[in-house]
């Protein structure tokens, strides 16, 4: 048992940002907007959190990390704005627009580091988020709350039903008086805020500064979690936990005597191999939102009325 709690802590530390980012992807895709920009939005959030925390750590003390998370949400939302404008406003191809955001974010965050701090990264902050109850990072409780609230919103509130309708059958939603474009726009912005929060939580618990490699593919892992979790909050949360479990296992396996002769790269491979196996083993019940990826209103060519 003495070994078990630290293991759980590592698991939670790795899984929490993925779960929050997974909810970001979920909210956007259930409204009908594919969001492959999670990686970039997380990067924007991580940059903002690291920069704000570095600046406020001295004057604001313990509140600084939470203010930094707020800044991460705001910055994530700012970076989601072009995605919303392009996909909802101009009916852009959602995958292309999302990849554009990823590029923009990877360039602009490092660019801003250079402009603000004169180097390719933010300066090192002293303490990030500190472990609290039972030695878990607060990101765990944040992640649990975000998953629960997302479920409650999507399945128990009228606005959540409307959001899902926009992703399944926008025509029906529109005829029932749901403003599809407004709903989708707000969903993308909420997605940006959540992804920013995930990135901020990640930089404040995993490391001591923001660099170009801080997110390191976590956004794509979250995208995988959305698909693996079949676009349902509980499922996506479980998929994120599975990734966390695999990473924690690989961290601990390095210390087992029987496995010590294997190279470290072998252990780094494990999480991805496990995920691939789960992907293959799970029955494929296609349940992606039916209208995700298509613009609304559907353009009817020349002379078509809106």
């Amino acid at each position: 048992m003495a070994e078990f709690l630290p293991f759980l802590r590592t698991l939670a530390m790795m899984a929490a940002p993925l779960a929050i980012a997974g909810m970001a992807g979920l909210v956007s895709e259930r409204s009908g907007v594919v969001n492959v920009a999670l990686e970039g939005l997380m990067g924007a959030g991580a940059f903002a959190a690291a920069a704000v925390h570095y600046a406020l750590e001295g004057p604001a003390g313990a509140a600084s990390a939470w203010l930094a998370l707020g800044a991460a949400m705001a910055f994530g939302m700012v970076f989601a704005l072009p995605h919303a404008a392009a996909t909802v406003g101009l009916g852009a191809n959602q995958v292309i627009s999302g990849m554009g955001i990823n590029l923009l974010s990877s360039g602009l965050t490092v660019f801003l580091c250079k402009a603000l701090f004169g180097m390719e990264r933010t300066p090192v902050f002293g303490l990030g988020l500190l472990p609290g109850l039972w030695g878990f990072y607060p990101t765990l409780w944040l992640a649990l709350a975000v998953v629960a609230l997302t479920w409650f919103w999507l399945y128990r509130l009228p606005s959540g039903l409307r959001l899902r309708a926009c992703g399944e059958h926008p025509e029906a939603a529109e005829s029932a008086g749901v403003p599809v474009r407004r709903v989708r726009c707000l969903a993308v912005l909420a997605s940006g805020a959540l992804a920013g929060l995930a990135g901020g939580g990640m930089v404040l618990t995993h490391t001591i500064q923001f660099t170009r490699g801080t997110i390191g593919g976590a956004g794509f892992m979250a995208l995988a979690a959305v698909s693996l979790g079949r676009w349902r909050p509980g499922g996506v949360g479980m998929a994120a936990s599975l990734f966390g479990l695999a990473v924690a296992a690989s961290v601990y396996a390095v210390n087992l005597d029987a496995l010590r002769r294997l190279p470290p790269d072998f252990f780094s491979m494990l999480p991805y191999a496990v995920s691939l196996l789960v992907l293959v083993a799970l029955p494929n019940t296609g349940s992606s939102p039916r209208a995700a990826g298509s613009a609304w209103p559907i353009r009817r060519g020349p002379g078509g009325s809106r």
Binding site: P82, A86, G91, A92, N93, I96, G100, L103, S106
Partner: peptide, 28 residues
């Protein structure tokens, strides 16, 4: 000039290209 500017330009170009259908309709 920070080299990241090249990445920023690529990002802007990709986002603009994603909107080509919308731009065409706007022109129409």
């Amino acid at each position: 000039i920070p080299r990241e500017l090249a990445v920023i330009v690529s990002g802007i170009v990709v986002i603009l290209l994603s909107m080509k259908a919308g731009l065409g309709a706007l022109a129409g």
